[in-house]
Write a protein that binds this DNA or RNA. Sequence first.
DNA 1: TTGTATGCGTTATCAC
DNA 2: GTGATAACGCATACAA
Lengths: 367, 367
Amino acid sequence: MSLVRERPPRLGATSSERMDRSIQTPLREKAGAKDIRLVAKKARVSCSTVSRVTNGCASVDTRLANRVWQAIKETGYVPNPQARALVSGRSRTLGLLISQTTNPLFPDLVQSFEVMVGSADSSHDRAECFVKRLTQRRVEGVAVMTFNAESRLLEELIDHQIPLVTIDFRADAPLSAVLEIDYLGGLTQAVQHLAALGHRRIAFAGGPAQCVTSRRRKEAFVQAIRSSGLSPDESPVFEGDLTFDGGTQAACTFLDSPIRPTAIICSTDMMAFGALRVLARQKISVPDKMSVVGFDDVHHAAFATPSLTTIRMCRDELAKTAFRALQSFIGAEPKVYRDAIRINTSLVVRQSTTLSPRLRVPASRPT
Amino acid sequence: MSLVRERPPRLGATSSERMDRSIQTPLREKAGAKDIRLVAKKARVSCSTVSRVTNGCASVDTRLANRVWQAIKETGYVPNPQARALVSGRSRTLGLLISQTTNPLFPDLVQSFEVMVGSADSSHDRAECFVKRLTQRRVEGVAVMTFNAESRLLEELIDHQIPLVTIDFRADAPLSAVLEIDYLGGLTQAVQHLAALGHRRIAFAGGPAQCVTSRRRKEAFVQAIRSSGLSPDESPVFEGDLTFDGGTQAACTFLDSPIRPTAIICSTDMMAFGALRVLARQKISVPDKMSVVGFDDVHHAAFATPSLTTIRMCRDELAKTAFRALQSFIGAEPKVYRDAIRINTSLVVRQSTTLSPRLRVPASRPT
DNA sequence: TTGTATGCGTTATCAC
DNA sequence: GTGATAACGCATACAA
């Protein structure tokens, strides 16, 4: 006995008084326990079997399984996620990092998984703090749904081998995937739409060059102009920021230029709203005197006046795809997913675009 | 021995082979464990002490505590929330139920608590499902931040004695609080603002009467009109729904009426956007020919053209207050909080309101 | 004040 | 296929 008592944790239980205590206290018989044991007792099986049933283990006798389900129904038993997480090491929780302007409600995606939401672009400190909490909570994956993600911010997640899905930008991590948005598709549609309406001078209000997303959108614009047979020389590009103010600045610049464009494509809907403001101030009616195209199709685009023709990047698809990718990562062996996942974009035509004024000058141009 | 082996769960451990196993496997020495034991060992104290330190228990010797903090720093130890939750029965998670149109990002509020977000008004089934998950996850409180909550939906939460904070509507539950929004304050400001600008006929675009919030807003409007010395008879009230379409319908109705109002106050910003659309279509310039006031101050209100004068209900304050209330509930004994918590509203003047046209007819009214 | 031992509710591992 | 039991990581009643 002395040998035994030297160290080990549980064997000391053989001492008599402890034995007594553990016998005198049934303990298990707590009032509204509703735990796995209660179900097991009611179904006359072991806890293991109940666990197997709730986890859909195939190798359970059908009759037993039925008994278990019955007992579960009777008791109203619901597995305790905390205990499950503790013993299995699986939190069944995903992280979601978004930028404030994005609508983060992707309830469809949260089926068997919960989601922790955090905003990125308010304060960097807070974002960092959020990332810390994500790892603490042992999330099984994080969807980084922001367009200005910094890889530095994600280091912590990468260190913990947490699967990552990013947009436009590849995280240097095993178990990560990129959603590569096909900006060219939507922008080509937009340019061709405008060209078909007779626009020749189409301006582009872009974002800061150091932002991957801005860069991509701008490059896609230039390419779309080329492939549509328009001249890049007649397609001025403004470089500001992606906000409302960026839009007002861009619009002012274009209006001040010697030869005004007849249409403006903006890098974001917010910029487009800024442009609309400036145009209204200067009594330049949209779309009659100037066509405006946005980008993102945010919720309000349809409700602005005039409603905004814009390039939709289906956030629903984006989110669904991101979370699908995360799910596929879970339990997978570390391996970089080389192929990016493509997300389409497409033009949504509303009221902010119409025929170029040039084609609508009434009598000046005889048939 | 036979007596012992008859039933009891753990005493069987005295049988030799098990002893052997448990001795041969130290188990505790796992690689990157980083658990409380590692810290305890490093600080040369017991797990209990570490636990006490991390939980800020006062009765710990300062020297020991320092050793523990030191060890925590060295090991990078972070308590496992799952285990903590399991043993303490506290999930440290709050629920947040919102309607889709609301911006749900309240990152400030989530300090030591996590938040599960769910949307209510898309599909009732989904909301119900979300509520179920909330109870499963054993959230310690739910902020029901939607204006169309049904008490039926909350039954499950109430049954589980989960603290609740609601808006405008009192849940029939112990441990619940109501945020009562002072609609009258903001609406009085709005009416007086318009009255001061010379408006006499002020219309109100309201929502469905069966919705508590719509009702309150309408009643507050009527009262504000009275207390401002205007005549309710000259203040037509339209009853539609709180959406964009509701706003267009209201505007059409008002424009068709024999004596048009010169200003419209809408029950929501979305309605106001709908009204703006109709007014633009009919070439009635806002604010010159018609002033428009919204309600809520949603994000886009400042970015619409013209920017929307609206009654702000500070969502930040709303959320902070709600979560503060929840925190105060936690651990409190069941007790109905009778006094509602007041939330102020206030007018934000922007570009969609100006002098009544009546006062601006140039020469018709000599000084 | 500090340490010991037990339990939280579940899954995983092994015998059977 | 099924059951007994250890382990998950922590907090806490109780003993010291």
